[in-house]
């Protein structure tokens, strides 16, 4: 997908400043916040859209329409990155349905995965995914959960060199195989790493986030709400009085603001079935971001609940 003028302007407006002076950009009200993908400088909005479970609706026409409406609101609100995987059953055709319906928005940043242990089948799987989405090529292809990464990565890097992909990455979640992720980050020319990061699961702060900064690797934070469990656990608890200081209006935004205020995080990809939620989530990509001291306070507050 080509970069839209609007996205570029946003990127120069705030995102481009981040790697140099993250604090400078914090605390300032703005439109949708972007961060540059370190390997190219291309700005990407800090809030994307996940599709695990939420977009796996089979051929249910009512639910497919709901997902298309979520995608419409996502693009309208300035979102770009949609993340999926062949593991997510019908999520890929659902995305394809929404994209067709919306006329393939230029803003789309397609993030897919290859997930097959027989690496010889990787190409065929990517082609099947591409056909489901109905795009010419993917922006980002990630090796899902490090499955056969030793074989998949060289093939993906070749596709990138041939111009059939724009970025290459790897993923994990829920703290699994972090040492191996670090080894890949240290030794392979990848553009993206995806791992779980939220206010309670902060292990990647120790080594993966610093390594990402050092190596110039973009970071996608998955499971911001622990698949919704986190929100369900705390939604009836009182919101802190200083909520507005964190730039949030509700719990979902509070949790998202925590994630995106880490300067090494490039974007977060909450999944949702609801238009009001996708709007709320995108709104978290605007306004002020909590500073370091406030981030600590946010952790303490949630941990004490």
């Amino acid at each position: 997908m080509t970069i839209t003028r609007r996205a570029t302007v946003q990127g120069l407006g705030i995102g481009a400043l981040l790697p140099l002076a993250p604090r400078l950009a914090l605390g300032q009200p703005t439109g949708i916040l972007t961060r540059p993908i370190p390997s190219t400088g291309e700005p990407i909005p800090v809030v994307g859209l996940g599709t695990w479970i939420t977009f796996n609706v089979g051929d249910d026409p009512v639910l497919m329409e709901e997902c298309a409406a979520v995608m419409a609101a996502f693009f309208e609100g300035g979102g770009r990155m949609i993340d999926s995987s062949p593991m997510y059953s019908s999520s890929q055709p659902t995305i394809g349905y929404g994209l067709r319906k919306l006329g393939y928005p230029e803003r789309l940043f397609s993030a897919e995965k290859v997930w097959i242990s027989d690496a010889g089948q990787g190409g065929a799987q990517i082609e099947a995914s591409r056909a489901y989405w109905g795009v010419d090529k993917f922006d980002l292809m990630q090796v899902h959960n490090l499955v056969s990464w030793e074989e998949h990565l060289p093939a993906l890097l070749e596709l990138k060199a041939a111009g059939q992909l724009r970025y290459v990455g790897i993923t994990t979640s829920e703290g699994r195989r972090h040492r191996e992720i670090e080894r890949v980050m240290a030794s392979q020319p990848i553009d993206f790493v995806q791992a779980t990061y939220n206010i309670l699961d902060r292990e990647i702060e120790e080594r993966i986030l610093p390594l990402a900064r050092e190596k110039g690797i973009a970071v996608i934070a998955n499971r911001p709400f622990r698949e919704g469990d986190l929100i369900r656990q705390i939604e009836d608890e009182p919101l802190p009085e200083w909520l507005a200081e964190a730039g949030a209006r509700n719990w979902a935004q509070f949790l998202l603001k925590f994630i995106i205020s880490h300067p090494a995080v490039t974007c977060v990809i909450p999944a949702t079935t609801r238009v009001d939620h996708v709007r709320e989530n995108l709104e978290a990509a605007g306004g002020i971001l909590p500073h370091e001291k406030l981030r600590r306070r946010m952790i303490d507050y949630v941990e004490a609940l």
């Binding site: 479970i53 796996n56 609706v57 089979g58 249910d60 639910l63 997510y88 059953s89």
Partner: peptide, 8 residues
Amino acid sequence: FLMFSPRV
């Protein structure tokens, strides 16, 4: 391991 919602 649950890849769909009860609603779906």
